[in-house]
Amino acid sequence: MSFIEIKNVSFGYGHKTPFEVQALSDVSLSVEKGEFISVIGHTGSGKSTLMQMLNGLIKPESGEIRLDGKNINANKKNISEARFRVGLCFQYPEYQLFGETCYEDIAFGPRNMGLNEEEVKNRVMQAISFVRLKPEKLQKSPFDLSGGQKRRCAIAGVMAMLPDVLILDEPTAGLDPAGREAILGMIGNYHKQTGATVIHVTHSMEIAAAMSERILVLNHGTVAYFGTPKEIFSHGEELVSMGLNVPAFTKIILELKKRGFHPEEAYTVEAAADQIASLLGGGTAL
């Protein structure tokens, strides 16, 4: 039995109206404890619907979702357990900050879990260490923080619940390169230190290739592929036809193949550099 099991899940919006859309059709997949998964797919492929189902915000119309063996929609107790065990961080989470201070904002989740103030405080301190927010910011209004800090504060609010499954919907959208790197580093930290499962929605093929153990490709509400970066990016043409792509580094390797070279496949900058270096008779990294 896998940690997360999604079995034959379907869901549609706007039934019995002319605007009916089938967001997910008969989706089945399972995720193991501690895996790092990236989810890619075009706008409207069903990514957000599926993510919201994983912590019970949306109920499947058919099929079921099991977390640690329990059907999360079976009863109220299971749903509220799923809400605490599966932390969901929406796109542009800083728009959802509401606390009078950063402390209050981050403490909201752990308090809802029924922890005492001492434990809540520990959770807040732990969360800001994950996202590298300085303790002196805790007494500030979250609205006085810079854009990048706001986002870190919002992500800390989810991490403070120490979810077993951390889901992030495009956590780096709209950030500059340094900000993207910082946020991805924090997610990596959380994954390593807590051993939690991380499910990360992204439009960047490069990030998906570099960070994930497996990549889930959604296309028009169905699972197109679910496998290692190597498996996924061997379907270059199919990905392009789904509005996706291969990482920029892979494109260069594929082009070299067309020109009569024989590099091995590569999905990250390091792997691509190794391949090209060996084509040119160079060594490995100094």
Binding site: E206, F249, I252, A272, A273, I276, A277, G282, G283, A285
Partner: peptide, 15 residues
């Protein structure tokens, strides 16, 4: 940009 990043990595490898 990605391509320039890759070129830097090639230089790291003595190319």
């Amino acid at each position: 940009p990605d391509t320039a990043k890759l070129c830097d990595k090639l230089r790291d490898r003595g190319i």
